[in-house]
Design a protein around this nucleic acid. Structure first.
Length: 330
RNA sequence: GGCGCCAUAGCCAAGUGGUAAGGCAAAGGUCUGCAACACCUCUAUCACCAGUUCAAAUCUGGUUGGCGCCU
């Protein structure tokens, strides 16, 4: 019954739970290739701050969508989706299983449910115009504009959330349709994949401790130097890449706005906030399989066995060592 | 031992007679082209006891705790 659905494994979770290591071990067991779903690891030169996988960690497992852009390049879901689909096709062609691994929930959603973004192209002029309006006349003015054309969206999006209000207006302007309707339709979509959506998780307090520890490690590894180097190369704070955790805080320090201690403190705090938001996102996603590390005694082998059992159950995997979804015995 | 000051949510902190600002943290949530973004919601009866008063976190007395100074 899953004839035409291609297999897809999603492995995500809040920052610093241990996704990277587990994804590689899983790939080793199922003949998988990793497609990174991480909005920061796509950038070259941003290694320490984005906790990017190192070559030695990879242990020969192919990784995709890492180091594909310069930090001054724009990136967003639509581009991610395009590239992810493209490299997934190649992985299927090789007879392997793609493992979508990373912490950017929105990106995962985009490929897992193959959400349609193509209906609109961006119009920078209109966007700028709206931004100007928001500045001059206030967020409420813009929100009122939205209410006139798409009351449902206006209801759903808080007036202060200027970014989303602008997007909704933009969508209406370009398609003549309400984005609320579009979103509703997309929400009904079923995934075109035969997938397992794993969310690795841990007790909140442990997670937060890990985050604090990892930030300290990043500092020891030379996060400061990494950011300084990027700054020298012309990276500015208004670039999308420089809004990443670790980059924006250290840049503030380098610009003399805060002390280094303060930067580190804020970085830890913001990272904890981020982890919390990620969890909120995953809780809301349907079809999620929660993998609580504590339930497996923090034993990665046991966790792995569990993941494999789910994959077998779902028919994504026939046995541990071969990848034969393309030529599986009936 | 004496004198003085202080005591408001996990932290910082306003409020000096009229029924507890604000910030941070924590927690929960939204998200369909910037998502490690942007945004939203939300937490107290004011150390304790007894008074004064229609009414006290705000005044009085005492208790406890802390801080400072003196002997």
């Amino acid at each position: 019954m899953e004839e035409n659905r291609k297999p897809l494994v999603v492995l995500t979770g809040p920052t610093a739970v241990g996704k990277t290591e587990l994804s590689i071990r899983l790939a080793e067991r199922i003949g998988g290739e990793i497609v990174s779903a991480d909005s920061m690891q796509v950038y070259r030169g941003m290694d320490i701050g984005s906790a990017k996988v190192t070559a030695s960690q990879m242990r020969g497992i192919p990784h995709h969508l890492i180091d594909i852009l310069e930090p001054d390049e724009e990136f967003h879901v639509v581009r991610f989706q395009e590239r992810a689909k493209q490299c997934m096709d190649e992985i299927y062609a090789r007879g392997n299983i793609p493992i979508l691994a990373g912490g950017t929930g929105f990106y995962i959603q985009a490929v897992l449910y193959d959400i349609d973004f193509t209906a609109t192209r961006s119009d920078p002029d209109y966007r700028e115009e709206l931004e100007k309006l928001a500045c001059e006349r206030g967020a409420d003015y813009l929100h009122e504009m939205l209410r006139e054309v798409d009351p449902e969206s206006a209801e759903a999006i808080h007036a202060n959330n200027v970014k989303r209000v602008i997007r909704a207006l933009e969508f209406y302007r370009e398609t003549g349709e309400k984005i609320s309707g579009h979103n509703e339709a997309e929400r009904q979509k079923k995934s075109p994949y035969c997938f397992a959506y794993f969310v690795l998780n841990d007790e909140r307090s442990r997670l937060y401790e890990n985050i604090d520890r990892r930030v300290d490690q990043m500092m020891e590894q030379g996060l400061l130097q990494e950011v300084a180097r990027l700054k020298e190369k012309g990276c500015r704070r208004d670039m999308v890449s420089m809004q990443g955790l670790g980059y924006k805080e250290i840049l503030e320090y380098l610009d003399g706005e805060i002390t280094l201690d303060e930067a580190v403190r804020v970085l830890k705090r913001d990272t904890r906030h981020f982890a919390k938001r990620q969890l909120t996102w995953f809780r809301r996603e349907k079809d999620v399989i929660w993998v609580e590390k504590g339930r497996f005694g923090y034993d990665s082998e046991r966790i792995l066995e569990y993941l494999l059992s789910v994959l077998r159950e779902k028919g994504i995997l026939w046995n541990d060592y071969t990848v034969q979804w393309g030529s599986a015995p009936k």
